[in-house]
Nucleic acid binder design. Structure first.
Lengths: 187, 187
DNA sequence: AAATATATATACAGACCTGTATATATGCTG
DNA sequence: CAGCATATATACAGGTCTGTATATATATTT
């Protein structure tokens, strides 16, 4: 991928999170990225297309980082499940963390027919399904129920972190997740 | 309060949730409310002022409804705490539910210096503190910790409901809350 | 009926936004 | 050096937005 395209994606990711998606104009993005609108519209067909690519990249980066961490951490499914929020916390508290795109995007694009909303919704579902597969591997009875609960904790904590950086919300989400997982494992 | 002012508040609340705050122009609001811009700007000094009043009304309505429900439901603090998510679920699944304003607003106004963000942040804190007082009354040891965890569940579930109406997320948040509260009461 | 407060209708200024058009510059390849 | 792809600089068309100005209508009160 072109370095300019990559630069635009990084800058847009940052600005969308810190200033909002609709409130960030393409002029601002190219100015910060040190390029011009002509170049941006060469790599992205529209602003909506840019938003979608930003979302895709953010989600893919997170998912592959997380899977890799979990796969190398342990082979025992129940241990993987218990380590889930350890790694999530590590990701969220890293200085480069800029929020989860799909949470902000779904708030800014509430119309269900909007492609941005649809992608956000799909990413949320994908993540929940990933947790569900971890839970199922660990022989949790109601894997779907636990996965939903854990994803609620996750999304709530990200929301809290986005509202106030360094709130430590994920630490408490982690503690809560341990209680919920232990309970589900005992069932 | 003037009936027109009240009508504008109701319509704005609805449109902000269904179309987004920044994406909803005052022209649309007055058209749906069946009035004109001149009237809107008589009752609200600016669009930002309207947003703030919408947030205040939404939060006040929810908080007073919830306190009243809890106060008439039981006198035993631990029972009140356990009934918390029962009533929250009742509120969220009612047909007139249009999302929690402060959750959407904090996503659309991420700048911490924005008055809208500040009010959202304050309302989130206020709600958490209310839960904390319930927990403290029930002699929970780490009342603040539990309150934060429950508020994460709450915000995550509202987020999920906003993303997809009728997702039933609050039902699972309620189940999770019971586990967390029972655990904290046993400590 | 006259006076006053309230609401409407409509137009517009100024700002911002997306996406494109046009012309120029830069760097790489043959 | 010549040719070509890539990036820049800049201007602008057409749209949307907020907030205001101006003129008119309606309803209540005196």
């Amino acid at each position: 991928m072109s370095t300019l395209k990559s630069k635009i994606l990084v800058v847009a990711t940052d600005l969308f999170q810190t200033r909002g998606i609709n409130s960030t104009g393409v002029d601002t993005i190219v100015a910060v990225a040190g390029t011009t609108k002509m170049t941006l519209y060469k790599y992205f067909t529209s602003k909506e297309n840019l938003i979608l690519e930003v979302l895709k990249k953010g989600h893919d980066d997170f998912q592959s980082w997380l899977s890799e961490k979990l796969n190398t951490s342990s082979k025992k499914p129940s241990e993987k499940l218990l380590k889930l929020f350890e790694f999530i916390e590590e990701w969220v508290t890293s200085p480069s963390f800029r929020g989860m795109g799909f949470i902000k995007a779904s708030a800014e694009f509430p119309n269900e027919e909007s492609p941005v909303h649809q992608l956000s919704s799909e990413q949320s579902r994908e993540f929940r399904q990933y947790i569900c597969s971890l839970a199922a591997d660990a022989n949790i009875k109601d894997a779907e129920g636990l996965a939903l609960q854990l994803s609620l904790l996750f999304e709530g904590a990200v929301q809290a972190e986005q509202m106030k950086r360094g709130s430590g919300a994920m630490k408490y989400a982690k503690k809560a997740s341990k209680i919920l997982i232990d309970g589900a494992l005992a069932d």
